[in-house]
Design a protein around this nucleic acid. Sequence first.
RNA 1: GCCGCGUUCGUCUAGGGGUCUAGGACGCCGGCCUUUCACGCCGGUAACACGGGUUCAAAUCCCGUACGCGGUACCA
Length: 493
Amino acid sequence: MGTQEFNRSSIRVRFAPSPTGYLHIGGLRTALYCYLFARSQGGHLVLRIEDTDRTRFVADAENDIAQALWWCGLEVDEGPEQGGSYGPYRQSERQSLYVKYAESLVASGHAYYAFDSPDSIAALRKTNAAYGIGTRRQMDNSLTQSSDVVQRRLDAKEEHVIRLRVPENETVQFHDLIKGTVKVSSESIDDQVLIKSDGMPTYHLANVVDDHHMAISHVIRGDEWIPSTPKHILLYQMLGWQPPKMAHLPLILSPTGGKLSKRSAERQGIPINVRDYRARGFEPEAVVNFLAFLGWNPGSEDEVFGLKDLEQVFSLERVGSAPAQFDLNKLNWFNGQHLRRLDIEALANRALPFLEAHGIQGQDHRYLQEVCLLVRDRMEHAEDLSTRFSYCFVDPERFDLVGVKKRWKADAADLVRGYVDRLEAIKSFGEETLERELRTLAEERGVGAGRIIHPVRLAVSGTTAGPSLFALLHVLGRDTCIRRLRKAVHLLG
RNA sequence: GCCGCGUUCGUCUAGGGGUCUAGGACGCCGGCCUUUCACGCCGGUAACACGGGUUCAAAUCCCGUACGCGGUACCA
């Protein structure tokens, strides 16, 4: 693979997670921005698995990442599953490439073999700020030993690493598409390990080699990489490669401002892994919409966007540079918005697994859709049908006590009984009939319609809140209504 | 500690020298609609971190301070 073969003019972005755990919400945000940028530019999205840390490797993490991306509709153009002409897409399968470049760096004097033990490095760090310029002359490495000795030790398979030889007194700088120009003195950069003693590359080397070999045009990643970027720039220079454009995304913070860690998130009821959002029934488009707006905005006052809409309007220039706090309230609002955008069929399918989980099995599909139509404007989560609106499927087990006190007056039982009698007599169970019967009854008894409406709602649903009463009765059907009304009269008296 | 990045309503943000008596959204509060609850609509609440410059003019530019976050691994 020679540099010349790459077409540097085309936009190629990579999402490069480590399979050290399930994909978390922050990782998904990075993936989303990568995807959105690629799509908005007509470019390609590459998924690269950075599995160079064997100690933290989690076997099903890669699959989880793929699932999470799929769930959100983030289609990958090249990757371990979909293949592509720049593969393999797992770093563990590209090891020889990294070693080759590390050795070429040693040959050109930009890197060196180091035999120091982690302990001796740690000891030295206590008295020196960085492992670099001054300290490396005191260490046990190919800079302080004759080449014969070094070669003999290498041949003897003595444990060693390859370190980057950071130049002295240099200002390393790069332009970030989001942050602007970032400058760092080379004095503050460690002689970074490039190849670990197990032969695997570190992130820094593997990342640079792969981004170059995969013809990546734009590196879009989290803010936490800014301090490492100068090391990468140095590597590009030493290897004689053109660095890709850089864009570092601001981090997502917990609602209280700190790092959004697993612990802090869970304490506030925020799911941390993408799979948890899925399990909790969040709309993927809502999660995407919410995440997109955490650090970016279209510059207009529109807020509700589907993935396809976002692909049209996304731009890196409009990504902010300040970190953003996660706001569960807003996510829930987006969820309601996107839920309401679903057609009834889809909405019913969303609710189905939750109904089953709540023991509400074998619902007729047509009936389920009618219920969805009935309560859709009152839903914020797919799960609501099986919780707040479970009375659409099963008789209420209890009556809201505050509601009873407020709505079930002395004459309630009598009025409800009167209404049931009428329901048994009527032929049609349509909304209009139901309403007419109730209003007629109210008139006959000389009471306001509300005097009957409220107790009936309470009797039939157990609660005082809910959809239009007559629509509700109609959907529940005659048998259910009569049964519940009689039962309530019996229980509440 | 050192290095880096950041700072507009509680939160997400618009704004990039005069159009800012700082706009939108979530939340919260009130109203309309209505048999209830929602949805929807209307209205209200609430912010330029602080201190110095530069300028006729600064939320916007510069410098400091404070605070927050990140990095400082043979983790990514």
